[in-house]
Amino acid sequence: MTEISSEQIYLDYRSKVAAYISSHIRNKEDAEDLVSDVFMKVHASLDKFDEKKASVSTWIYTITRNTVTDFLRRNHISEELPEDAPSPLLTEESYMKEETLSELASALNELEDDERRIIALRYGSGFPLTEIAEKLDLSYGAVKIRHRKALNKLEELMKNKI
């Protein structure tokens, strides 16, 4: 197993952890505290990390996401964060890799422009379909149909990759 130090992990991942936390936590002080919490947890569990089970990136992302989830729960803030993997056969470890993000980008580029934008706005920016319809100057019905078409196409394009 590659020797990984806490210091190197901090240098390599601090900005990613901070960016992720800031996207979910508005209060700057809370966000900074949570960044520290994440790296304390990383340091505390580094000896248990097994590279065969997950990449460093996925491992740190999971710690970060769980830290944010715990914070939101403790503070009774309701926010949609990803739930567990949809099926026992399809675990997060099987598709939550950086390569999958590149493959998703390639698949999105094969969609029609409107379809790609709807997916990006819905899942990337978090807008509901009603708001996406306003933003794209389309009817709600048209957005719903294109959203469904895009999901079906992506399922086909991504099926061998996830």
Partner: peptide, 10 residues
């Protein structure tokens, strides 16, 4: 997609 785009924020 929700999971992947959330991972993208990281």
């Amino acid at each position: 997609l929700k999971n992947l785009f959330d991972f993208q924020r990281f």
